[in-house]
């Protein structure tokens, strides 16, 4: 069932090409604005600014793309799923699918940053590991919140307002890891942050799994 639902998400995504290209263009514009406003080819930026810009670009595009997982859906569709699958399977499939989406977005963002601005990353493997962990964390936090926001009136504003305080913990850890990775510090030094990130992910995913049935019912 889980695999079928994930496949369904993929099919839907590929069928609505406007949405996915919209997200891609959104991210491209964000990064291009960063590049233009800092006029980065002439004057280079230091590592702290690079990581701040990078995570801001990722955060905004991820919030906007995960928001659509419940907000864009038509009213009747939820009832249709309800007859087919249990809420636990639905939320798990959405979280896994969104985690993949976030990972693809982060990788694209990294590529664009390397192309336009600079690639100061010294320890690529650890940086990729950070991207995987943050994608999972973002996806489980944002998927649940998108489920909540979808029921309310002004969903898009609400999505941003509700999600920022929740993802700040992940973001802080990610920025700290990025700093270590950019400075090329010994890997043992960032182990604490990695474990912390993993723990936050576990808490958020478990809670999303437990709480989703309650939002589902309305």
């Amino acid at each position: 069932m889980l695999l079928i639902l994930i496949r369904k998400e993929f099919m839907l995504e590929l069928r609505r090409k406007a949405v996915i290209s919209g997200i891609g263009l959104y991210m491209f514009s964000l990064i291009f604005i960063c590049y233009l406003t800092f006029s980065l080819r002439q004057n280079s930026i230091n590592e702290a600014t690079w990581s701040a810009l990078f995570w801001l670009a990722i955060l905004f595009s991820v919030v906007n793309s995960v928001a659509k997982s419940f907000i864009g859906e038509k009213r009747g569709i939820a009832i249709y799923y309800y007859t087919l699958a249990s809420p636990h399977v639905v939320i798990l499939s959405k979280i896994l699918y969104n985690a993949l989406l976030c990972l693809v977005l982060s990788l694209t963002g990294y590529g664009l940053f390397a192309l336009f601005i600079d690639n100061p990353v010294q320890d690529t493997l650890y940086f990729l590991l950070t991207l995987v962990l943050t994608s999972l964390g973002f996806s489980s936090a944002l998927t649940l919140i998108s489920g909540i926001a979808a029921k309310a009136n002004n969903s898009h504003i609400l999505m941003a307002v509700l999600s920022f305080p929740v993802v700040i913990a992940i973001l802080l850890m990610a920025i700290r890891l990025t700093k270590n990775v950019l400075d090329g510090i010994d890997r043992g030094a960032s182990l604490d942050e990695l474990l912390n990130l993993l723990a936050i992910n576990c808490i958020l995913t478990a809670l999303a799994y437990l709480l989703f049935p309650y939002i589902w019912r309305s």
Binding site: L162, V166, A169, N196, I203, L207, L211, Y214, I215
Partner: peptide, 22 residues
């Protein structure tokens, strides 16, 4: 009542590492 209760629990759990760990 129901949705805000869900958010209350979720946000509180996300806040714990922020206030007590970091």
């Amino acid at each position: 009542a129901r949705l805000s209760a869900v958010y209350n629990i979720f946000a509180f759990a996300a806040m714990v590492p922020l206030i007590f760990v970091i």
